[in-house]
Structures are given as structure tokens and as C-alpha cells.
Design a protein around this nucleic acid. Sequence first.
DNA 1: GCCAATTTGTACGTATGTATA
DNA 2: CTATACATACGTACAAATTGG
Lengths: 253, 253
Amino acid sequence: MLAVIEPISRQSGGARLRQHEVAERIKQYILQNRLRPGDALPTEAELCAAVGASRSSVREAIKTLTALDIVEVRHGHGTYVGRLSLTALVESLAFRGLLSRADDFRVLAELVEVRQTIEQGLAPSIVAALDDSLRTGLGEIADQMAELAARGETFVEQDRRFHLLLMEPLGNELVTQLTAAFWDVHAIVAPTMHTTPESVQETVQAHRAIVEAAAAGDADRLSAAIAAHYVPVRRHLQEGPEVSGPDAEEATA
Amino acid sequence: MLAVIEPISRQSGGARLRQHEVAERIKQYILQNRLRPGDALPTEAELCAAVGASRSSVREAIKTLTALDIVEVRHGHGTYVGRLSLTALVESLAFRGLLSRADDFRVLAELVEVRQTIEQGLAPSIVAALDDSLRTGLGEIADQMAELAARGETFVEQDRRFHLLLMEPLGNELVTQLTAAFWDVHAIVAPTMHTTPESVQETVQAHRAIVEAAAAGDADRLSAAIAAHYVPVRRHLQEGPEVSGPDAEEATA
DNA sequence: GCCAATTTGTACGTATGTATA
DNA sequence: CTATACATACGTACAAATTGG
């Protein structure tokens, strides 16, 4: 079972780091055995014996792969193939945004441009893949937003689900995950962004317009509605960093 | 200097892992001291003393942050703030692609759809930001491609530079980095993709058409040229996995 | 609920490789 | 070339979490 992993030759050409070699071996092991997310990996002790490295090196290699969600470790249970999510992208981009947040929101502005480009560009595909359940689903979320806004409450989770539901019928898992990732980054870097009463109403109306355009099956109208949706977001980002979010301690958690 | 980092209280609410706490402290240290990529971080020994953790925990935390390019370690020199690149996204997506490659190219097909959506969606902005140096730059790369193709050689690096140069004038660093990242993922998962003589010629012509459309300042024509550019790519992906690339050992390196 | 086995997490000491002065 | 500072690797011991009897 572990025969596929061969010990590392000390003098193997490139004098690279031990942990890198080990990480490569583990990736190869997953690929060659065609493992899937959730499948069990050898224990640390077995890996040490298999690749001929110390436990420290094996653990540091595992740490790297864990950060990329290639492997997943459960304390006291074992090591498994990870879900290969985009958590690494979220953490990396979020930290970049937090670093530049004090100066300006350039990173976030760029992110919004990417989000808008993707959503508008996929508008034709969205109307083509339209579905009754999707129509009603989007409508319900928009209704919930209006309700919550009327009560003076926020609707961050509804907003996230709305944009994910919009992308879901495309059947493109990467698009869905990128949408979620970008939304999460935005939420981490500027969580309390549009909370003024006016922009809340503006946002509710924008989502309504998107629902109606999608229901009408008009791609151009949908594209325009999406563009309008991001107008208040862009405006807040240009107003400067004084809107601010929580302190660094909580933001990175 | 290190006073900002406070020791970790054992009983601080969530009974989380040591290394996670340490990683958070390091991130906070970077944020609170407003460090920039390349700035020096305390040595491992100093970090140990500052957060009250052992070398093992500190090193594992650093490993996690290194994978996200939040910190960068130079052997025998020290630890520094990382460049915050998208290497983590590349590694993660590339491995996902390699995992599914044996079965199909679904992941890669999804990636191409995202690339095409972004490039087409930004076509209007590109023609708006057009520049003489950009025009000539794109033209030169296209010429090089044609030359190399005539000699029966490949032009992977030219292809990469072409698409990066196309995005550069937008001034959106995230778009540029995402373009590079997606291209790299594609190159890792399917490096020897379009090498049949016909598709090579097709690709050369496609890039020519993009240059001409951009030079003409016609956004719709540019969008169409980009769409045409991806047609042969999509075709190869649909043809199935038998085109194959290198074995797993080299692919993950 | 308790105990024991397995597995990962943390700590510490030591030696080695690497870069700088 | 020597000395110093630092990261890397190895090994051992123990703590914490999970599972099963």
C-alpha cells in the first residue's frame, strides 16, 4: 500500500528542502492512488518510514498541504485528502486587502471590478440556464432582504446566497467557488460597508431589478442590473477608508 | 519592538490549536506594525519568546503563512513579509486539475470559461486604455509566435506574455495576477495541449486577430476575436484526456 | 462512565546547512 | 578563512483528542 512512496535520495540532483520533497511525494501518492477528497492518508509514522524523513519534516510538509486544502488533518484521528477548496485564495487575498485597507481600498476596488466583470459576462449564460426554481429562489431571497431592511436589520447571508444562487445553474463549479471566495474576501476586509439607510434601500432595489431582469430572460437588462448593483459598492469604496471595519484582531480570525 | 505581541493565554476561550494562535499573532504583528512585503519579521527565537510558544509551534505557523505567501523565509537569513502573490491559488487549482485529469478535463474546461469571460468582459476597457506601446508590444509578440510556429517550435512563454500584456493597461493588479495564475494552472495541468500543426496555426491566427481588433479600437470585434481564440482550446478539452501531459512526478514540481 | 490504544499536537535538545560580516 | 546568526532537520518525550471495548 505504501510501496508507491520511495525514500528520498540524499544526493538527488537539486539540493532542495526536505519538506518540499516530502510534500511532492505526498501529492504524488494521492495522484497515483487516485484518492478523492475525504480518503485516508497514511499516518505520520507511516509517512516517515515510507519517505525516510523525520517527523518534523513530514509534519511541515503536511502543514503546507493543509494550507492549500490538499490535505486535511483531524486531531487524534488521522490525515485525509482535503476538499481542495479556495480557502487559501480567500486568506491570501483577505490579508492583502487588510494590509492596504489603512491606506486605501484599491485591492477591494479591483476585486469588485473582477466580480462585476464575471457576473456581467455570464449574464447571457444565466438567462439561458434559467429555471423556475431558480426564479422563485432568487425572488424569495430578494423578499427576505426587503423584509430585513424594513426592520432595520442587515442581510449579509442573504446577499451571499443570492449571488451564489445566480451562478449555480451554470454548472461551473469553479465560477461558484470563485464567487463565494471573492464575496468572503470582501466581507472580511470591509464587513460593515453599506449600512447607511440609503445604500441599504439601494441594494435591496438592485437585487429586485436583477431578479426581474433574469425572470424576463433579457440578458442585456440583466447585465445592466448587475452593473447598477455594484454602483453603490464602488461609491463607498471611493469615499475612502474611514468607513472601516473591525480591528485586525477579529478580522483575521 | 516586539511588545505588540503578547503571550497566548492558555484558557482563552476557544480551545484552538497553538499554531493557529501563533499564526494569528504573526498576522496581527504585520498589520499593526503596517509592514510591507519584504520587511523583516522577528527571528524564530524572538517569536517563540514573544508569544510564549515552542519552536515547533512557531515553525508550523510560519509554514502555513509561507504557503499563503504571507511570509517568506530565506534560509540562514531570516523571515520576511511575503509578496502576497497567488501562488497558493495556482498550487491548489493545479492539483485539483491533476486529480480530475485522468477522468476528464472538467476543471480545465471550467477554468477556460472563466478566463474567456474575464477577457471578453474587459474588452471594452482594454480598447479604451489602448496605448501605442501596447499596440506594438502585442504585435511583436504575435510576430514572434508566427516565426516560431513557422520553424516548428512552440511559444508558450510568448502566449503567456501576450495575455498578460493585454490586461496590463487596465491598471488592475488583481486581474493581471489572476490571468497569470489561471494561465499557469492551465500550463501545469495540460502543458502539451495544442501542439498539432493545425491548432498551432489556428492559435497564431487567433492572436493576430486579437491584435488587429485591439488596434482598430473595436471592442465588439476584440471580444469576438477572444472568443475565437478559445475555440480550439475548448475543442481539445472536449476531445478527452488522451492528449495527456507529463506524469504526476514532474507535473507537481 | 472509564480505560486503553491509536494518532495528531506540542515541547525541547542537538546537530547541520546556509548566508553574512 | 573564521566567526556569528539563523533556518533546517532529526529524535525523543509527553500532552491532547478520538475511537472502541
